[in-house]
Structures are given as C-alpha cells and as structure tokens.
C-alpha cells in the first residue's frame, strides 16, 4: 500500500430531498429554515430565532405541530403535548397563553376511543394551564398517509409584564445559565416506549406546562434576560441557538459536573452513545439571569413540581467569538459540538 492509494473517493453532493435529519432540531434544520423557508415566506424573520412572535405591544403568537410516535407514552400523550408545546413556546417570551386553535389530521381507520382519550387529555391540559381552545379544524387522510393522528395548535397570549423583553439579544456578560430540571427524559421515555432497541426502563417524560414557573419568576420581579424551552435538539441546541443569535460576542461556559441528569437517562444515553445534552425535553427550559437574581430564580424553579433538580449550569462571558464551551471535571474546556441531524445510535 503506498501513499497514492490514500485518496478520498467521496464526491460532494447536495440534498435534493427532505430527510428526517432536517427535522432534528440541529444544524440541518436551521439551514433549512435560513436558506429555504425564511427567504421565501418571511425574510424579516431570518435572524429572529424565537419560537413565538410579538405581534402587537403585548400580544404574542406561536404555533407548533405534533407528530410524536407513539401517541401515548409514559408521562403524557400527543394531546397534552399539543397544548403545552404551544403554551410553553409563548411562556418563553414571557406570555401567558389565552386562546388556542386545534388542527387535527386523522388517519382513516384510527380508533375513535383513542381519539376520545386524546381529546380528554387536551381538555385536561387546557384547564391546567388556563387556556381555551376557541377554533379548530379536522381533516381525514387515507389509510397509510398519516400516522394515526397529527395535531397542530396555534396560541395567542398576553405578555405577563409588557415591558420585559426576553430574547437572545438581552443576554449579558456574567449572566448565570440555569436549567429548570433534569434533562433528556422526554426523549428517553419515547425511545423506551418505541421498544426499538429492546430496552426496558421506568422513565416518564418530563412533559409539563412551563407557564406557572415563568409567571412566578416574572411576578418576583427577577432580572431575567432570556428563556428557551428545550425541545428537539435538547439543551445543547438551545444554547447554540441563543449563543449564535445574541450578536454580542458572548460565550457560554457550561460546567459538565453541574448538568442535572437522572441515573436512568444517563444509563440509556451511555448505552446508545447519545449525548444527553442533545436529547429532547418537553417540560424544561433554560434561563439567562443576572447573577444577583440567580439564587432566587433557582429557588423558585426548585419549588415547582418536577423542578427539584434545577441547577445553575454555567455562566456567560465576553469573548472574541461566540462559542459554547463545556468545562470537564479535569479542568479542560471543549467546544460543545453542534448537532447535525438526529442523534443515531453508534456502532460501538
């Protein structure tokens, strides 16, 4: 074997079709948004990087679609998810959802008793978070063209404090980074519920309404700068999004020892070669808070149901370029990788 044999045979090629990885919450999804979707339908939003839009002085609007499989999983179901998914997006700009629309896309042959179960769950969730479904739409697609049921919800809400602006641009040098509970449980529960890898574990999704916690934080008058719910792509992707859209050359430094992680999720992630930082959550958010209010923010988060593992996980510092760093237990600092598409189980 000589040096001449060591040439790389792989040609460059572009994506001509949408692949599953485009929906993974990572780099591929952001490229799709920035290069394909925003320029065509909403050029002024190209750098907004927020899950909710402020449409008037104190009104916020958001929408979300739900395609989770299985429809019922430990800790929740698609109905509950479809309410909290949208109300949580509104909460992240400091808004409390008032009204929801509900779009149902049902597959021919879907059991009506399952639909009734999902609707009961939607009803319970809307009461829990104090929002009302006021309009909706129902479509049925032929058998094989859907996955039982898909749901879209859109929500309108009013800002809890009309002068408080929560956005990546508000993040400051020295801010503390706080996560509202242990991470990765939603994705872990879905992996187990899908039975794809033959793994049995008792893990319930973290699915929860974030509005009550956010209201408490805002009512306490804390100096909050930015909130972001951790959905697809997990904490890691949320931090990258905020970091790269704050436009102030701020870097985030995470302490790997402080990341709240349950034993079950950690074990599952180790087994599959997943990084819990990139695993999906549905009832967790990250807050950027001025250091003076960090302790009180943490205390409020920890006092909420499911929030006992909330933790200060890092700080913001001024640098020449915006980066997300992870500090190891051994004192070394590494850049946090950017998730490309979905996480995939590694071969070894």
């Amino acid at each position: 074997m000589n040096q001449d044999n060591f040439n790389c045979p792989i040609p460059h090629h572009d994506d001509e079709r949408i692949s599953i990885a485009h929906g993974g919450g990572g780099l591929m999804m952001h490229r799709l948004l920035e290069k394909t979707i925003f320029p065509r339908v909403s050029p002024e939003q190209a750098h907004a990087s927020q899950d909710s839009a402020l449409i008037a002085d104190s009104l916020a609007l958001s929408t979300d679609s739900f395609v989770v499989s299985p429809l019922f999983f430990p800790g929740g179901d698609i109905g509950r998810l479809s309410v909290f998914g949208t109300t949580n997006d509104l909460a992240m700009v400091g808004a409390e959802a008032n009204y929801l629309s509900l779009g149902l896309i049902l597959e021919e042959g879907f059991p009506k008793c399952d639909l009734e179960r999902i609707l009961a769950s939607i009803d319970a969730a809307q009461k829990e978070v104090g929002v009302k479904v006021v309009t909706g739409d129902t479509k049925v697609v032929p058998r094989g063209k859907g996955d039982g049921v898909y749901i879209n919800t859109a929500g309108v809400g009013r800002l809890i404090n009309p002068v408080l602006r929560l956005a990546p641009g508000q993040v400051c040098d020295g801010d503390h980074i706080i996560v509202s509970g242990d991470i990765g449980r939603h994705e872990a529960s879905i992996i187990v519920a899908r039975k794809e890898f033959g793994i049995e574990a008792d893990i319930a999704s973290d699915l929860a309404a974030l509005t009550p916690t956010v209201r408490k934080l805002i009512d306490a008058g804390l100096d909050l700068h930015c909130l972001r719910d951790l959905t697809r792509g997990g904490l890691g992707s949320a931090l990258h999004e905020i970091c790269h859209s704050n436009r102030k050359n701020l870097s985030f430094v995470l302490d790997s020892e402080k990341l709240p992680l349950s034993q079950e999720v950690n074990s599952l992630a180790e087994l599959l070669g997943f990084d819990p930082l990139f695993m999906a959550n549905e009832g967790r958010f990250v807050a950027f808070v001025s250091p003076a209010d960090s302790e009180q923010t943490l205390a409020i988060m920890q006092s909420m149901p499911g929030g006992n593992a909330a933790a200060v996980i890092g700080t913001v510092r001024q640098e020449e370029r915006s980066q997300v760093w992870v500090k190891s237990a051994y004192g070394s600092e590494k850049k946090l990788p950017i998730l490309n598409g979905d996480q995939l189980p590694r071969i070894c």
Binding site: N5, F6, N7, C8, P9, I10
Partner: peptide
C-alpha cells in the same frame, strides 16, 4: 478514487 480531490483523508 478521484485524484483531483483536495481531501487528504488518507
């Protein structure tokens, strides 16, 4: 193999 490739993977 494409010998014009700038990639030095080998």
């Amino acid at each position: 193999t494409n010998t014009n490739d700038p990639c030095l993977a080998g």
